[in-house]
Nucleic acid binder design. Structure first.
Lengths: 326, 326
DNA sequence: CGCGGTACAGCAAACGATTGCAGTGATGCT
DNA sequence: AGCATCACTGCAATCGTTTGCTGTACCGCG
């Protein structure tokens, strides 16, 4: 019932190999023949069967994208950009969600390995060791994680953290809290390292709270200890936590930024509509999605390792930061 | 280099067909042989090649999910639920984004048709006629769109609209505005029909503004005409528009809900953190994602049309609605 | 003892494409 | 004229599975 290469061959009076070549190596077939074949093909509505093609060429023209949580607003722009870029290169994108679970993550890579040409691992939670191992089974690009020389697209959160801390120092803050992210997050480690260094060199103390899941919920839960800590400003692992925290504080009547300054990371859409609007470090998620796809595909073609790239972040000052009280 | 069924056959001293049957029809192979094969298989790390399997069985165990805009916060929970449900049934999910473009939509269905067992069409923008035609080329489930007897998962926005309007009537509003959605949206038509009816039967007027793209931007742009219209309450096509509108109004110093009440639809995560918090009609997106996958797969098995299901919505009253001024 | 049945396991033909190789006619060069 | 070259096209093997059919050994039964 489906129209195959054979139908096209019959309809245009040539051998199937000629039809095949019309699509995959047009310069090898006579111009007249080519138009005849193409005419027949689109009159019949022929589309090459990708499974058959994959079987013989070994390339599926699919790529897998694995994220910790599709519903986390950080990811959709990345997914969107990756999908668009992939499609433009005639690739289709599998999307899979691990629910922040490292075990699921591994299983997913393995399950996908055979039916994709490569996998994009976004903010993976698994161990370095495992990533290096999986890399030998399937071409991989890590996003937001540096491990050995595994090809990676990184966002410069260290730089972002520095800018954020310097912004707070400049406002006069001397006791700053860091609402840390989940264990196993590369971004989280970078953040902590850079924030600590920046605070110290500015003569301030940085108090770390965590690890925490990267959720609004977790942000809420932090309100208590934060309030007791005496910190006058908080830098959160991501906007989601920052927003949760702000919600909780607001419900307790804490004025922001007058009583406490809050800075997030990511610049998700949400952060523009909170009250007060969130000061945050914007991460280039769309660019990262595109870059990751490009890196994966070029790696795939060359066989060569594709290196690692680091994308800059930007501090966006809105309304949730101000001078410390008193 | 990859391990195939042949390697497993060699390692366990049986014919490849026996290996194949060990996986796809275990009852046809002797218990002892079976354990031998399984042992060999997982020692070698064998995974059946889905392309080869697809080629002969005609079933890819993939399904396609097409949405208008991945970054629209309405969709990620739906995608997430669909992906989880699919995976549980041993299916993988292709995700594709149309950028709200009906032409891209059609092209995507066609491109995916050959390599999936079915397609989930979420809030499609294309014509009814086209949907019916495509349906003959590939199993389809429409989400948020009723067309003929195409299998569909619907959300009862009519009921939601009714509840919202009644809520506003009860508060005393008599001039209500509807910020309409995009042309070609089934949800939009339902909404308009139900809202108009509910308003009329409550003795109020409903003024329609639109069509508009379903974006924050569009909501912002509506502020002017809305303010001039004399309406004391607005029901928006979705939360995104409602939020955009609120942002714009806030920047002009309009107090909500005192001077104007706003109701959204969808209950996206954002709507809990705006100021004031948005009163909205919650749509069961996760349930819809799961249901759509189930419907697609059962349709696929039975060949029979799978019907249409309608999921209930809930009115969530928060802070953006109150009595009209004066 | 022979016959039918059962329970496995192997054989080989598909599925729909790609691709190295060989064949053909025409053309160019000497 | 003869030979090498070229441009094209056909042939057939191949990718990794599934599955209908055939073969074989064994069992129970009459």
């Amino acid at each position: 019932m489906a129209v195959t290469i054979r139908d096209v061959a019959n309809a245009s009076g040539v051998h199937i190999s000629t039809v095949s070549r019309t699509f995959s190596a047009p310069h090898l077939v006579n111009a007249e023949t080519r138009v005849r074949v193409l005419a027949a093909a689109d009159q019949l509505g022929y589309r090459p069967n990708r499974a058959a093609r994959a079987l013989i060429t070994g390339r599926t023209h699919n790529i897998g994208l694995i994220v910790a949580d599709i519903a986390n607003p950080f990811f959709p722009p990345l997914i969107k950009a990756a999908e668009a870029q992939a499609r433009q290169r005639d690739y289709h994108l599998f999307v899979a969600d691990t629910n922040e679970d490292a075990t699921v993550e591994e299983e997913l890579v393995r399950a996908l390995a055979k039916q994709v040409d490569g996998v994009l691992l976004c903010s993976p939670r698994m161990s370095n060791q495992l990533i290096e191992r999986l890399r030998r089974e399937v071409p991989l690009v890590a996003v937001n994680r540096r491990v050995g020389n595994v090809p990676a697209v990184l966002m410069n959160v260290a730089q972002g953290a520095r800018m954020a801390i310097e912004h707070l120092l400049q406002l006069g803050h001397r006791t700053i809290a860091l609402a840390a992210g989940p264990r196993g997050s590369w971004t989280g480690r970078e953040l902590r390292r850079a924030a600590t260094a920046a605070a110290r060199s500015g003569g301030a103390t940085l108090q770390v709270f965590g690890p925490n899941p990267p959720t609004e919920q977790a942000g809420r839960a932090l309100a208590d200890s934060l309030l007791r800590s005496g910190a006058t400003a908080v830098l959160a692992y991501n906007d989601l936590m920052a927003i949760g925290l702000m919600e909780e504080l607001k419900s307790r009547g804490v004025q922001m930024p007058d009583e406490l300054s809050v800075v997030g990371i990511d610049d998700i859409a949400l952060s523009r509509v909170t009250h007060p609007k969130l000061t945050t470090v914007a991460t280039p998620t769309s660019a990262a999605g595109r870059a990751a796809v490009d890196m994966l595909l070029s790696q795939d073609r060359d066989g060569a390792a594709a290196g690692q790239i680091m994308l800059d972040t930007t501090l966006i000052i809105r309304e949730s930061t101000g001078p410390p009280p008193g």
